[in-house]
Simulated assay, not measured.
Amino acid sequence: MDTITAKEVEEMINSGKEVHIIDVREAAEVQQGAIPGAVNIPLSLLEFRAHELDKNKEYVMVCRSGNRSGLATQYLNAQGYHAVNMVGGMIDWEGPVE
C-alpha cells in the first residue's frame, strides 16, 4: 500500500497541485475539522459510494489516525482505483481545517 505523510499532502496543496482527498471518518468527526476540499465518504459507506470516484484520479485517503484510511486504501486499490493512505491521519495534520 502506498502511503503519504500529512506534511507531504499539505505541501502538495500549498504548491497548487490538485489533490483529491477522501475523508473516511464519520460525519460527526468531520464536523470537528476537515482538510479544506476533502470529500467525506465514511468508511462504512465506501463500498456503496465508490462508483462516485474516478479510476483515472489518485485519491489521498484520510481518517483520524490512518487505520481506517488504510483499510479504505486497500479496498479501493483492490477495486482498480489508485489510492494512497495519509499515515498519521488528522492527528498529524498541521494545515488549515474547515
Rank of each mutant, 00 (worst) to 15 (best):
L46D: 02
D54I: 06
D23K: 00
S65V: 10
K55N: 08
G66V: 00
G33N: 05
D23W: 00
S69H: 01
Q74F: 06
A27K: 15
E52P: 07
N77Q: 08
D23E: 06
T5E: 01
V30C: 08
V62D: 00
K7G: 06
V87G: 02
Y59Q: 00
V19N: 07
L53I: 07
P96E: 15
A28T: 14
P96Q: 13
Q32C: 10
Q32K: 15
V60R: 00
N85T: 04
K57T: 07
G88W: 02
R49L: 13
E52M: 10
F48C: 05
P42K: 04
Y75Q: 01
H82P: 02
E11F: 10
S69K: 00
H51Y: 14
D2R: 10
H51E: 13
G37A: 12
N40A: 11
K17F: 12
E58H: 08
G89V: 04
Y81W: 05
P42E: 06
N77R: 06
L45T: 12
M12C: 09
E98G: 15
K55I: 07
D23I: 02
R64T: 06
V30H: 03
S65P: 05
R64A: 14
I21F: 06
P36A: 10
T3N: 11
A78G: 12
P36V: 10
G66F: 02
S44K: 15
V84P: 02
M90R: 01
V97C: 07
S15E: 10
L46W: 04
R68I: 03
W93P: 01
L43M: 12
L45H: 14
E94A: 14
G89R: 00
D2L: 09
G33C: 11
I22V: 11
E26P: 05
Y59C: 01
G16D: 12
K57C: 10
P42Q: 05
A34H: 10
G16Y: 11
I35W: 03
L45Q: 15
I4S: 10
R25K: 09
V24P: 01
K55S: 08
A27S: 14
L71Q: 13
H82N: 14
W93S: 04
